[in-house]
Design a protein around this nucleic acid. Structure first.
Lengths: 195, 195
DNA sequence: GTCTATAAAACGATAGAC
DNA sequence: GTCTATCGTTTTATAGAC
């Protein structure tokens, strides 16, 4: 396992992505330079290209990893349940997951337009898959008469927008605990779907 | 009123702001160059500086104008009314106004982090003023027992997030008319606040 | 008021030494 | 794997002719 001095591929690679994530979330993809990322990692700009073919791939990898993790986490948490219980689980999961990963979420919602068309298509497909998870729950509840929705598709988008909005204001130092925020959002969603 | 050939201050000024608005909304502030804006207007880059001291002011002026117009439009439309009627008016106004001005709205929500701190403070104050308009309605309804809210502040943010989300998916060519979208959102908000 | 030209700096990305 | 150095381009903003 001997390695040359200055060789740190196993640790530098993740650090590059972590730095890009932090900076993209804070300043926006287009406003962040490769030199800034390199400085944050503690290497020179040229060294970044050992870990990414270009800046675009850095953004794409972050967004894809986030959405794949999100889907995997939901499918691990989800389980067969009546619509009302499934919806509660989804709401609380969504709020919790988004509060735990503010940078990933922020990038996924803000940087779509900075993806080249080919990458955009991949990300959009993943995002749609996640939306469909909620839509399926609402559909089932509607069919069973548990929910009272005029338009299931619009309700899906409205609920996700409402829940995701938590990331724009929640601060750990604020007056509400995460658990209380989860509960308050679930309470509003439950009423909004007519349950 | 004689004017020299090539002198178009009264029309070029607004055109510069209109071009910046369109391009910032589409590609993002940081990704748009002054040259792109100039090309869109049909002048050379240097000529832009007759209408704005710099790129930052272009963004700030757009955001401030949008928020001031939004507040003025709401105050013109708003009128003393019971909380339920006031809330319906607010919801329908918000959806309609946002659908009518997708570029302004998109910039106002996406480009906050590209404002220098001094400008950010001004914009945040305006945004807060608009939020307070809704919060006041919810507070009044809560006090009168018309609404059943666990947390008025969180409900305010949740409702605004839900309504604003319409801009991310609505297309004029879609299956729903604007009026129907207004109605569907109002229906969900009404239920969400427990009215 | 708009143009051409340019200053001064920053950008993404690459080459080659070590 | 990281460095230094740099290529070629683009950036914001300004100066001065017309």
């Amino acid at each position: 396992m001997a390695r040359k001095t200055g060789s740190h591929s196993e640790i530098t690679g993740p650090r590059v992505h972590a730095a890009a994530q932090r900076l993209f979330a804070r300043y926006g993809y287009a406003a962040v330079s490769m030199r800034q990322i390199a400085t944050e990692v503690g290497v020179q700009a040229g060294a970044l290209y050992n870990y990414t073919p270009d800046k675009q791939s850095l953004l794409f990898d972050l967004m894809r990893a986030h959405l794949e993790d999100l889907l995997a986490a939901w499918r691990a948490e989800s389980c067969p349940a009546p619509p009302l219980a499934a919806l509660e689980r989804f709401c609380r999961f969504h709020v919790r997951y988004h509060l735990d990963r503010p940078d990933e979420v922020f990038i996924a919602y803000m940087e779509l337009r900075n993806l080249v068309p080919e990458n955009f298509a991949v990300i959009e497909r993943l995002r749609k898959r996640y939306e469909t998870e909620l839509e399926t729950i609402l559909c089932a509840g509607q069919a069973q008469g548990v929910f009272a929705l005029e338009d299931v598709k619009l309700a899906t988008l409205a609920v996700i927008a409402m829940l995701t909005g938590v990331t724009t204001w929640y601060r750990d130092t604020g007056r509400l605990s995460r658990n209380r925020v989860e509960m308050l959002y679930w309470d509003m969603v439950r009423k909004a779907v007519g349950a």
